[in-house]
Simulated assay, not measured.
Amino acid sequence: MSRPRKDPRMERAAHLVPGGARPRFDLAATPATSGRLRRDPRAEERLALVPGTLRRRLDRSQRAPAVSVVAVAAPVEAEAAPRRVVIAEPAFLVALVPDAPGGRLSAHDRQLFGAARLLADAGGGAVLALVDGSSEELGAAGADRVLALPITGYDPEAKALALNAALAALDLRHVLFPESAEGGDLARRLAALSGEPFFAGAESLSPKAVTRAARGRRVEQRRAPPRLLSLAIDAIAPHAGSLHEALPVEFAFPETTGGALLSAEFIPADPARVSLAEADFVVSAGNGVSDLDTFRMLVAALGGTPGASRMLCDAGLMPRAAQVGASGTVLEARGYFALGIAGAPQHLQGVARCEHVIAVNTDLHAAMIERAGLAIVADAQKVMPALLRLLGEEGAP
């Protein structure tokens, strides 16, 4: 269907007889056309049809127009660079101590920067990041100043003593911690050393008030923000929109004397025995995985926690505790590897908070493929032994 579109105004102008007082029309004149061609929705749908599938599927991203249309592209404006903020002489400092597992800021750490910026921007202050090492992410996260702590390895007592020295010497109006296993322990150590009031697990924060639920969430505790407080996860949005200088700060830390702890070592838990709610990396099998022995070997080789879709748990092939989804366990993992999982709505709710998602599925249009940051369109039964061979060649544990 390539008939030109009618333009009633042009046709009326072509029939108009000039020179008359009243408008007269010559119906025998040749009508003019606008030149625009009519669209053919059926032809466009045939072009978008994906061949070779049992179910009728359309690939809208590859849709080509049924007729040739000449279009002039509008000039694309260059994306504006983020605004750089420099605070030369801050009125005070709001410090924070991120967990930064593996040297990278977690989502909880970025929310901590958002809370610190909320307190600092209210009165002309600056944000001071107290970290174990340097990181390129601190400026974009919202840090104006960076102070490196003289700590190597896992030593919570020495770290608490160093923070106590900085708290006593520097003008720190607030010190924020993530309410996590490591951050919560460090915050309570610092509160015991300094004698400062400590507010744990804040669920909302403003320059004038901090709140949290108590007594089985039947009451709300509210007070002015103290000097030491820890922030619950998803309480404050991360900082975004401006780039800060993250200027290094020099500070002479005193020599730490021997404490009660002779040695401290962080021993990670066995990922195969960790619950899904606390797992950091989860590998799940779906209906596309039939060789569960190979699946368990791959999970052990990758050092992940095994999970499964509801279909495998309902069939009794995987334990109910391994079910991922709204009716199973909602994950907080940084990494999720889905093998042969199409991605039901309940399952996608269970992986909504995962930072990185990798999916393997034969269906290009599966919901899990769309959710994944890295997708492999292939049979999971063939991908698993190939991954095991690669891991064996690289000498993976």
Rank of each mutant, 00 (worst) to 15 (best):
L149S: 02
A162W: 02
G133T: 12
P75V: 11
L176C: 04
P156L: 08
G142C: 01
V94K: 07
A120P: 02
L170G: 04
V72N: 10
V70H: 09
E137M: 02
D99H: 12
E137I: 00
E137C: 01
D171T: 09
T152F: 10
G125V: 07
L147P: 00
L119I: 10
L170V: 08
A95Y: 03
A107Y: 02
A78L: 14
V97E: 02
G133Y: 09
A181T: 12
S135Q: 07
L118T: 14
R173T: 10
L170W: 06
L96H: 04
A107K: 13
P101C: 04
V86H: 14
A126H: 08
P90R: 09
A81M: 14
A88W: 03
E137K: 03
A107S: 14
L93R: 10
Q111Y: 02
A100C: 12
A73P: 06
P178S: 11
A73V: 11
A73W: 05
L93H: 07
L112P: 03
S135F: 00
D155F: 03
E182T: 13
G139V: 04
V131D: 00
G184R: 09
A129N: 01
A168N: 14
A80Q: 14
V86S: 11
A95H: 05
F177G: 05
E182S: 14
V72L: 14
V86P: 03
R104T: 11
R83D: 08
S180Q: 03
V72H: 07
V146I: 10
L112C: 10
F92Y: 15
A122G: 09
A80T: 15
V131I: 13
V76N: 05
H108W: 12
I87E: 14
V97F: 05
S106I: 09
A129Q: 03
A166R: 03
A181Q: 13
A168P: 04
Y154V: 03
V127Q: 05
L93F: 08
P150L: 09
P156N: 11
F92V: 01
I87R: 15
A143V: 01
V97S: 03
P150Q: 04
A81V: 12
G139E: 04
E77Y: 09
A165N: 02
P75D: 14
P101H: 08
E79H: 13
P98Q: 06
I87D: 07
F92R: 14
V85W: 00
L118V: 02
A158H: 11
A95F: 04
A74K: 13
G125I: 06
F92I: 01
D185Q: 15
A162E: 06
L163Y: 09
L105K: 07
D121H: 11
H174K: 11
E137D: 13
A143H: 02
A78H: 11
D155C: 12
V131H: 02
T152V: 14
P98D: 05
L167Y: 11
A80G: 06
G184L: 05
A148K: 15
L163W: 00
L119T: 05
K159W: 01
V146L: 08
L161I: 13
P150W: 06
D99Q: 13
L105N: 08
Y154A: 06
L167R: 12
S134D: 13
A169W: 04
N164C: 15
E77H: 12
D144H: 15
T152A: 15
L167H: 07
L93V: 07
P150T: 08
V72G: 10
N164F: 06
E137Y: 01
G123V: 05
P82D: 03
A165K: 10
